[in-house]
Amino acid sequence: MSQTVHSSGDHQPDENRRDFLTLATTAVGVVGTGVALWPFVDSMNPSKDVLALASVEVNLANIPVGQAVKVMWRGKPVFIRHRTEREINEANEVALNELVDPQADDARVEKKEWLIVVGVCTHLGCIPMGTATGEARGDYDGWYCPCHGSHYDTSGRIRRGPAPKNLEVPTYTFLTDTTVRIG
């Protein structure tokens, strides 16, 4: 159907040049197309207004000892528990080698009496029970995830059940003794 373009032989040097040129052009074109796709991918990352709301400030003054609250942070609940002396001791008494995801209580809190964790079960993302007074807190006095039966202790660490990791600790800073900024 087509005619032959080059007879091989005489055009050898030109052939090489064309190959190089074609190759280089293809490379530039492919790179350009790849870069052009980035804005589309990037547009699905959190937008600026979403990022601007990525931190919340919480007043702790109204949380009595022994109680916990849930606050919304980045569309997820964060549990803030004002721990009792007994709960703090429970968290510190357990030997690290007994833990599924070994982590000392010290490494998970900034102030002993305040435990702040993301309230999302590390198994498949359900919200564990145990924050509101009267809810089942599981066998380790922390939280209990009703979906698949994971038990968390008073440091939010996984003790039994299918969850692989401890409840995540968000970054937070105490602005004063009674206000904390999460995120």
């Binding site: 373009v5 030109d14 064309r18 040129l21 074609t22 052009t25 530039v28 074109g29």
Partner: peptide, 14 residues
């Protein structure tokens, strides 16, 4: 501009 110039060169060759 660079890419188009290269494409033009390839086109001329072909």
């Amino acid at each position: 501009i660079v890419l188009t110039a290269m494409l033009y060169a390839v086109k001329r060759k072909i």
